[in-house]
């Protein structure tokens, strides 16, 4: 063990699939470098488990640089661990102390069934997107980018909303398992721009309907989502979606 390396105890949720009951399993993580990411620490533990003939811990990951949103882990009572504004892959072991016990759980929500251990199925988010998270365009040659002028402020606000990576930390953090921050970011990024305004009424009604059908809970404005979002998506998006939803419900020209 080189200088400054840490020994940790992990309490990790193990679950075979969505139909079985899970339980906590305790693992020793020995000789962990403080410069490793949280996922690299899991890689080391899994290597050791595999070489001793045991089953490794299943977890999701892809980009390992904070842009894909796959690395869902609920660490010591917080999504993506103790630091704000980052994903689990961006969390480093120096955020913990030698000898710490770390409890790692999957996102827990009826709409995110566990696939295995820490990996959850977030296809409910995909179905919400299919319900309205798009603009309908005729294909053909790409139009000149400046054909439609867009105020800088609108472009910036839309871009801030578009920073959402669909990780689901907002749902995991919320005591109600509400997906309002995610859905409102997707509604906002489109409805703020001229191309998205055309379908904005149908979009918000359909996406919210799908969100409810997936079994996410109701927003009570605790603000936990905004505080835990790795991309700092703002609660203003939720208010915008509420506004659009109320407006569309009252004025939509359909029965």
């Amino acid at each position: 063990m080189s200088h400054g390396n840490m020994n940790l105890t992990l309490k990790v949720w193990k679950q075979k699939n969505k139909d079985t009951k899970g339980r906590f399993e305790t693992y020793d993580a020995k000789g962990i470098s403080p410069d490793m990411s949280f996922l690299e620490m899991f890689d080391v533990v899994n290597e050791q488990l595999i070489s001793s003939g045991k089953e490794p811990i299943a977890f999701d990951h892809d980009c390992r640089e904070g842009i894909c949103g796959m690395c869902s882990m609920y660490i010591n009572g917080r999504p993506h661990g103790p630091k704000g504004g980052i994903t689990t892959c961006q969390l480093h072991m120096r955020s913990f102390k030698n000898g710490d016990t770390i409890v790692v759980e999957p996102w827990r929500s009826a709409a995110f069934p566990v696939i295995k251990d820490l990996a959850v199925d977030r296809s409910s988010f995909d179905r919400i997107m299919s319900a309205g998270g798009f603009v309908s365009v005729n294909t053909g040659n790409a139009k000149d980018a400046n054909n439609i002028l867009i105020p800088k402020d609108d472009a910036d606000t839309a871009f801030d909303a578009a920073a959402c990576i669909g990780c689901g930390a907002c749902v995991a953090a919320c005591k109600n398992s509400s997906a309002m921050l995610f859905v409102s970011a997707k509604v906002s990024q489109l409805s703020l721009l001229p191309q998205g305004k055309i379908e904005k009424q149908d979009r918000v009604l359909n996406m919210v309907k799908q969100m409810d059908e997936e079994g996410f809970g109701n927003c009570t404005n605790t603000g936990a989502c905004e505080a835990e979002c790795p991309k700092s998506i703002s609660l203003e998006n939720i208010a915008r979606m509420n506004r659009e939803y109320l407006g569309a419900s009252f004025t939509q020209n359909k029965v």
Partner: peptide, 19 residues
């Protein structure tokens, strides 16, 4: 409805960190 949305509770919750 909100209870139904999380059938399995978390073991450790650090709610004070975010709300």
């Amino acid at each position: 409805e909100n209870r139904k949305a999380r059938p399995t509770p978390y073991q450790v919750v650090n709610g004070g960190a975010n709300s």
